[in-house]
């Protein structure tokens, strides 16, 4: 693959306890975790978070191989953070900041891995809906995220195919300075945009044909049901977050 990780952000159904939690509970928990990992002060706190991450991945029954593969796109960002801190501050600082970012990203990656896209969209929809009252397009935003999760893998495949086709026509995509490279990518970008627009058109038509008229009046095959375990999950993650913040 010239354009790797087609499975990026893809749901991996294993039927684990984590998978069965309400998407809203997972969103809340992630929010608590992220806001506590981000200000983590030292390696000790970070190692506790790492242990919790390991426990989470174990509970989700998803293999580390998949978790790390899905985090691959952010490796660049982590490397950048490392190098920046190495030159700007110190090696310890560089190690700390980049591993903190790494742990943070892995927690974030666990959300789409354990939550079906539609559920995730429904969860977001439910959480954002109070904003709908002040004119924020809550349902539309959630729908958009759900659709993006469905179509990103497809567009990656599409991109890969176009790159290959242009390479076989002798395109030199990996030579020259940055401007030449950007210019060399036009034969990839233009067909890609045409495909995206055409798909968008056809998808809109197909959705209309299936009776979609926006969020109002829509019901769910699996309505979100908040259970005791969801409250527990949120309380536990909130508690851990607060304790580790104060420690």
């Amino acid at each position: 693959m010239y354009f790797t990780s087609i499975n990026l952000g893809q749901y991996v159904p294993t039927g684990s306890f984590i998978h069965r939690l309400d998407p809203r509970a997972k969103l809340f928990s992630l929010l608590f975790i992220v806001s506590a990992v981000f200000p983590a002060k030292n390696f000790f706190i970070l190692s506790i978070w790492t242990a919790l991450l390991i426990a989470l991945v174990w509970a989700s029954k998803i293999s580390w191989h998949i978790v790390l593969r899905d985090a691959r796109p952010v490796f660049f960002l982590i490397a950048f953070t490392f190098i920046f801190n190495l030159f700007a501050v110190s090696l310890t600082r560089a190690l700390f900041t980049s591993s903190r970012l790494f742990v943070l990203m892995l927690f974030a990656v666990m959300l789409p891995l354990t939550t079906a896209p539609l559920e995730l969209a429904d969860g977001l929809d439910a959480l954002l809906s109070p904003l709908g009252k002040i004119g924020f397009p809550a349902h539309e935003s959630a729908m958009m995220i759900g659709m993006a999760l469905r179509f990103i893998p497809l567009l990656m495949q599409e991109t890969d195919k176009i790159i290959r086709a242009q390479l076989s026509r002798g395109a030199r995509l990996d030579q020259g300075n940055i401007f030449q490279r950007v210019k060399a990518f036009f034969p990839v970008l233009i067909p890609l945009f045409i495909i995206i627009f055409r798909r968008a058109d056809e998808i809109a038509l197909a959705m209309e044909a299936r009776g979609y008229e926006g969020g109002s009046g829509r019901t769910r095959r699996r309505p979100l049901v908040w259970k005791v375990k969801d409250s527990l999950a949120v309380i536990v993650s909130a508690l851990i977050a607060v304790i580790l913040l104060l420690a």
Binding site: A116, P117, L118, M147, R199, I203, R210, R220
Partner: peptide, 25 residues
């Protein structure tokens, strides 16, 4: 078919039309 399937999971997609009709789950 890629341009008609809106959900990433089989059952979720099949449910799209009756969900739009507002039917009970």
């Amino acid at each position: 078919p890629e341009n008609q399937i809106v959900a990433a999971m089989v059952e979720d997609d099949a449910a799209f039309a009756p969900e739009n009709q507002g039917l009970p789950s």
